[in-house]
Deep mutational scan, measured.
Amino acid sequence: KFNKERVIAIGEIMRLPNLNSLQVVAFINSLRDDPSQSANLLAEAKKLNDAQAP
């Protein structure tokens, strides 16, 4: 279950337009470290993406 959620979360994070490459890598590394947190990490990535919108 967590592996599928992690793959989906990674794909979504990679498509967030307002994150820089270091932020994307940090979120992906966090997902690798704890796949059970996929939903929480994706939500945090989306919040950061929205906050950094031009």
Rank of each mutant, 00 (worst) to 15 (best):
S30H: 09
A39D: 05
A26T: 08
V25T: 12
V7A: 14
L48Q: 04
L19C: 02
A51S: 09
A51T: 08
R15D: 03
A26G: 08
V7P: 02
A9H: 03
V7H: 07
S38T: 08
A51C: 10
A45F: 03
I28F: 05
Q37R: 13
A53G: 10
M14Y: 06
G11M: 14
I8Q: 08
K4N: 07
N20I: 06
F27V: 02
N18E: 01
A53C: 07
Q23A: 02
S30F: 13
I10E: 13
N40H: 12
N49C: 02
V7C: 15
I10W: 04
I10H: 03
L31M: 05
A43G: 06
L19T: 00
I28S: 02
L41S: 03
D33N: 11
F2G: 12
Q23R: 01
A45Y: 05
Q37K: 11
A45R: 00
N20Q: 05
E44H: 08
K47H: 07
D50M: 12
K1W: 14
A53Y: 06
D34T: 06
D50N: 10
I13F: 03
L22G: 09
V7D: 15
N49H: 02
A51P: 01
R32F: 15
Q23F: 02
N20K: 11
S30K: 12
V25Q: 13
N40D: 09
R32N: 15
A26R: 11
S21A: 11
S36K: 06
S36R: 08
A26M: 12
Q23L: 03
N20T: 13
D34N: 10
K4E: 15
A43Q: 08
Q23D: 03
E12A: 14
S36V: 06
L42W: 04
A9L: 09
A51W: 10
K4M: 04
A9K: 03
A39R: 13
R32T: 14
N3Y: 12
P35W: 14
P54K: 08
L19D: 00
R32V: 15
L19K: 00
P17W: 07
L31R: 00
P54W: 11
D50K: 10
E44T: 09
F2H: 14
A51G: 05
N3A: 06
E44V: 12
L19I: 04
A43P: 01
M14F: 05
Q37T: 06
F27Q: 00
N29I: 15
P54F: 13
D34W: 08
K46T: 05
L16Q: 02
V7R: 15
A39H: 09
I10T: 04
A45D: 00
A39I: 11
L22N: 06
D34A: 06
G11Q: 11
N49R: 01
S38D: 04
I8T: 04
L16N: 01
F2I: 14
V7T: 09
Q37G: 08
S38W: 15
L48E: 03
K47I: 10
N18S: 04
N18Q: 02
L42D: 00
I10S: 03
N49S: 07
E5K: 04
K4S: 14
K1E: 15
Q37H: 07
N29G: 05
I13E: 00
N40R: 13
A9Q: 03
E44M: 14
I8S: 04
A45Q: 00
K46E: 03
N40I: 11
D34V: 04
D33S: 10
V25P: 01
L48C: 04
N29E: 07
G11S: 11
F27H: 00
A26D: 05
E12M: 14
R6V: 15
L31Q: 00
S21C: 15
K1T: 09
N18C: 05
V24T: 05
E12T: 13
A9D: 02
N3S: 04
G11I: 11
K46C: 05
A26L: 09
Q37V: 06
S36P: 03
S21G: 08
K4L: 04
A43T: 11
K47V: 07
N49W: 01
E12Q: 13
N3W: 15
K46I: 09
A39M: 14
D50W: 11
N49Q: 01
F27S: 00
S30P: 01
P17V: 09
I28L: 14
K1F: 08
E44A: 13
N29P: 00
K4Y: 08
N29L: 15
K47M: 08
R6G: 15
L19W: 00
V7G: 05
L16W: 01
N29V: 10
V25E: 07
D34P: 02
A26C: 13
E5Q: 09
L16Y: 03
K46Y: 12
K47W: 09
R32Q: 13
S21H: 10
A51E: 09
N40K: 14
V25L: 13
L31Y: 03
L22H: 12
E44R: 14
R15E: 03
V24D: 00
S21W: 14
M14I: 09
N29W: 09
R6Q: 15
Q23Y: 02
V24P: 00
S30T: 10
R6Y: 15
L41E: 02
I13Q: 01
S30E: 07
I28R: 02
V7W: 15
Q23I: 04
E44F: 14
V25C: 13
I10K: 03
I8D: 03
E5W: 10
Q52P: 02
S36C: 10
L48H: 02
V25D: 05
I13W: 01
E5T: 05
A39T: 11
I13N: 00
Q37L: 10
Q52H: 03
F27D: 00
E44S: 09
S36Y: 09
N3Q: 10
A39E: 07
F2S: 13
K47D: 06
D50V: 10
D34Y: 09
R15N: 08
A51Y: 10
A26Y: 12
L22V: 11
